[in-house]
């Protein structure tokens, strides 16, 4: 083991491979979360991972930590219950965009209001992947999915402003920008209060291929070309990734830049 692979201590290696499709970006996010844990040296006893339902939700079971795989959309209230029951625990939610922003959207909104000191990592693949590829709350406008055969008539939810409204932590990043993703997750974990990382990641099978991407690399290269890093901006444009600036809360030193 060296520094590059130390993160593996946070995984149940004997359960690998994951059930995800070849080229699924979820594995990249899972790995990067573990790297962030490793960077902060989070204690394995004392850290709990909670997930909802979906392809992304399956990741909870691969952490070599106590973990809870809840019902669809309910990871946040379960995580809040854990945190309010035992404040000493680090509580991290990992789930999909449909789970967290769609069916669980009200819980997300209320957790922002309560500013519960937990971290949410959203595997944002812009689609309901597990159920075959239906439109999600962050599927781009005009995109064709199983349930929007003529293109998504709606605009995607831009949730950063919800976080801004109560000085919570919000970052957007992608599976291409590995260092950036890791930095976002580390900062989110360090944040005292409610923190959320929207990690754009590729579902090649039920999304990318239908949009014309030949493979996962093309999706990764799209992230590379489309997104520009703009950390500590007041707000992120559609094609920007970064940590949004929020006023320091009395209890912590954030932001650092």
């Amino acid at each position: 083991m060296n520094n590059d692979t130390n993160f593996k201590r946070y995984l149940k290696l004997d359960l690998l491979p994951t059930p995800w499709c070849p080229g699924c970006g979820n594995g990249i996010v899972l790995k990067t979360i573990c790297q962030a844990f490793d960077e902060l040296d989070l204690p394995k006893n004392g850290t709990v991972v909670v997930s909802g339902i979906g392809c992304a939700g399956r990741s909870a079971g691969f952490f070599d930590l106590d973990s809870v795989h809840t019902a669809h959309g309910r990871a946040i209230p379960v995580a809040e219950g854990i945190k309010y029951a035992n404040d000493a625990l680090n509580v991290v939610v990992v789930s999909g965009d449909g789970d967290l922003i769609g069916i669980g959207g009200n819980h997300l909104f209320q957790a922002i209001r309560r500013n519960t000191n937990i971290t949410v990592i959203c595997y944002a693949n812009e689609i309901y992947a597990m159920t075959g590829g239906q439109v999600s709350p962050i599927t781009p406008h005009n995109t064709k999915t199983l349930t929007t055969p003529n293109g998504n008539p709606d605009r995607p939810a831009d949730i950063q402003f919800l976080f801004k409204s109560n000085n919570c932590f919000f970052a957007r990043t992608t599976a291409y920008h590995l260092n950036h993703m890791r930095k976002c997750i580390v900062e989110a974990l360090k944040f005292k209060g409610f923190s959320f990382v929207e990690a754009r990641t590729m579902c090649i099978v039920n999304y990318g291929r239908r949009l014309g991407y030949k493979n996962s690399n093309e999706m990764l290269l799209h992230y590379k070309e489309f997104y520009k890093i703009n950390d500590y901006a007041e707000a992120l444009a559609e094609n920007e990734i970064g940590i949004i600036k929020s006023a320091p809360r009395s209890s912590d030193g954030f932001p650092s830049a």
Binding site: L16, P17, C21, P22, G23, C24, N215, S216, N217, L220
Partner: peptide, 12 residues
């Protein structure tokens, strides 16, 4: 045993 032959590494 872990490799799913997705080709990400091959292409990169």
């Amino acid at each position: 045993e872990y490799c799913k032959r997705c080709s990400i590494c091959v292409n990169f």
